[in-house]
Simulated assay, not measured.
Amino acid sequence: MDTPSTPVALAAIVHAGKGSADALLLEFIQALRAQHYRVYGLVQGPAIQKGDHSLRTVQDLDKGTLYPITQNLGTESSACRLDIGALLHASEVLRQALDSHADLVIVNRFGIMEADGQGFNDEILALIDKGYPVLTVVSHTYLPAWRAFTGGLAVELEPEHQALWNWFESSRQAA
């Protein structure tokens, strides 16, 4: 990431375990929307049960559409179940946010795909390049990759309501 000429409104909620920041993020989004802020992007969605297995999803905050992002590789498989094609399909939501006049864009995770230089990285860069505040979630596991990706320019937030509000207000003042 090149050093920008203006402050970057990019932050990650740093959490310790799977799903531990999801409820906080959804509550924050609801509170922002209650104050008429425009929040777009993707959040972790509910699992979809398909026969004897479940698929993880991401959900479009604007339309509510669910995008299954994992695939069934069988019960004996230990390979990564993320479906790259499905992630590409879901990334359209983030590309549409580029024209949304959003007050905040949510990217559900900076996870294994993003840590490997794939996933939603291009969309994150495009959003911040266009000046949108971007908020994501990152686990301690991927924190070193997050720091490398952002060049240390992103804010790392504790999973607390006040930390989210403080960052959001400061990102709005910087715009």
Rank of each mutant, 00 (worst) to 15 (best):
T75C: 06
D129M: 09
A126D: 12
E158Y: 08
W146Y: 02
D60T: 06
L73K: 07
V105Q: 02
G51F: 03
P144Y: 01
H89T: 01
R95S: 13
A97N: 05
G74D: 05
L25E: 12
Q59C: 11
A102P: 06
K18L: 07
A145E: 11
A126C: 03
P68C: 10
L104G: 01
L104W: 01
R172M: 13
F149K: 02
A16D: 14
E160K: 15
A145D: 13
W165C: 10
Q49T: 07
G64F: 12
Y37P: 06
I112D: 12
S139R: 03
V58S: 07
A34G: 09
R95D: 09
T57D: 04
G111M: 08
G131Q: 05
G85V: 00
D60I: 07
G152F: 00
G152A: 10
I29W: 03
G45C: 08
S100Y: 08
D2A: 11
D60F: 09
L61A: 05
S54A: 14
E169T: 14
G17C: 02
F28M: 05
R81N: 11
E76S: 13
A174G: 05
L32Q: 10
G117K: 05
H53F: 14
I84Y: 15
R172S: 12
P46F: 01
M1D: 08
D62H: 15
V58D: 06
A115Y: 03
T65G: 14
V105N: 04
Q44F: 00
T150D: 00
I29V: 12
G131R: 06
I84S: 15
T70C: 11
G41R: 03
R81F: 12
L143N: 10
H36A: 11
I128H: 09
P133D: 08
G19A: 07
L94S: 02
V8M: 13
F120M: 14
M1A: 12
A145M: 06
G45Q: 03
D52R: 13
A47N: 11
A174I: 14
G19L: 02
T150P: 02
V14M: 05
I112H: 14
Q71F: 04
L26S: 14
R109D: 06
P159F: 12
L125W: 07
C80H: 11
M113T: 00
L82Q: 14
I112Y: 14
A79H: 11
T136G: 10
L104Y: 03
T150V: 09
G45D: 04
L82G: 10
A12T: 04
A16V: 12
E92M: 07
M113Q: 13
L135W: 03
T141P: 00
A9G: 11
Q173G: 09
Q44G: 05
G74F: 09
I128M: 12
A148I: 01
G19T: 04
L125H: 09
N108W: 05
V58A: 09
Q44T: 04
E156P: 02
M113S: 14
I48W: 08
S91I: 01
F120R: 06
Q118E: 14
L135T: 03
D62V: 15
Y37S: 00
H161Y: 13
